[in-house]
């Protein structure tokens, strides 16, 4: 009885199947179209072709945008993590004046629409004269991804047995040694999970980046968006397919390593 009551019924499984089709259909369609031999958008009804993947190699602008996105993700995720670790330690372990304010401040980008951040950064960076530079992209991305790293590092620190660090200190370790040898290794999964989530968020970001990027410094999503504004051809589908494959690989690593549901619900 108890086991059966926890099984899904036939209707539930039908619902589930439709839901899965709904989720996967657009991705599958993109992948299919990427293999079309035709010069226009169509499904590969007369055999598969790799011509649109070869076409990517002939587009240095797309390749450059891809590397820009990669660099931007690496640099800004790392910077956000480095800023998050000490902040999370302070927020988790000390009660001090301004603690609530800082907590709210660091998480506020989650509540501010990216479009608003985009226009705000556009104005700010052009006023201080660094508009369109790689540095300005990094700054803007750190602001929007730090809530993710902070939440995961914070969850890791809160879930930590504080006494291990005290044990280290009682054995003669300095606070810094205690942190480096005892605390950091234990919160490392949370730190890495936060870094990865931050990286992928930065890599995918479009809305805000559209305003901050410049023709010289553009990211892959912005490049694709601008391309879509002009025309939609199978090149977009092949680029998208590459992105899907890379993201799925990344996701499997993240899930294996930390648990996708834990990362995405921001709990430790």
């Amino acid at each position: 009885m108890s086991v059966d009551s926890r099984r899904n019924g036939r209707a539930a499984l039908a619902f589930h199947t439709l839901f899965m089709i709904f989720l996967l259909a657009p991705l599958v369609v993109v992948i299919l179209v990427a293999f079309t031999p035709e010069g226009y958008l169509s499904y590969p009804t007369h055999g598969f072709s790799l011509r649109w993947f070869r076409e990517i190699l002939a587009r240095p602008d797309f390749i450059k945008a891809f590397y820009q996105s990669l660099n931007l993700g690496l640099v800004s995720a790392t910077l956000a993590t480095v800023l998050s670790i000490p902040a999370a330690l302070a927020l988790a372990r000390f009660r001090f004046t301004g603690r609530e304010f800082l907590n709210g401040l660091f998480l506020s980008p989650l509540m501010i629409p990216h479009i608003v951040l985009g226009v705000a950064f556009l104005r700010f960076f052009s006023q201080i004269g660094i508009g369109g530079t790689f540095a300005s992209l990094v700054f803007a991305h750190v602001v929007i991804i730090m809530p993710y790293t902070l939440r995961l590092v914070l969850a890791a620190v809160m879930g930590l047995d504080r006494e291990t660090e005290r044990a280290a200190i009682s054995l003669g370790a300095s606070p810094w040694t205690g942190f480096r040898r005892i605390t950091l290794p234990q919160i490392l999964p949370g730190v890495a999970g936060g870094w990865m989530l931050a990286f992928i968020t930065s890599f995918d970001e479009l809305t805000m980046t559209v305003f901050v990027a410049s023709p010289g410094n553009t990211t892959l999503p912005v490049k694709m968006y601008n391309y879509i504004e002009q025309t939609i051809d199978p090149l977009l589908a092949s680029v998208s397919t590459v992105i899907i494959v890379l993201t799925v690989a990344f996701m499997l690593v993240l899930d294996r390593f930390y648990g996708l549901d834990r990362v995405l619900s921001g709990k430790g």
Binding site: E163, R166, A167, A168, I169, G172, G178, I182
Partner: peptide
């Protein structure tokens, strides 16, 4: 400072370093 006292402490949770 606690790290200068040199006392041996056994914690209730043992606080062994898991790694």
């Amino acid at each position: 400072a606690p790290n200068a006292r040199g006392f041996g402490i056994v914690f209730q949770s043992y606080a062994l370093f898991p790694h």
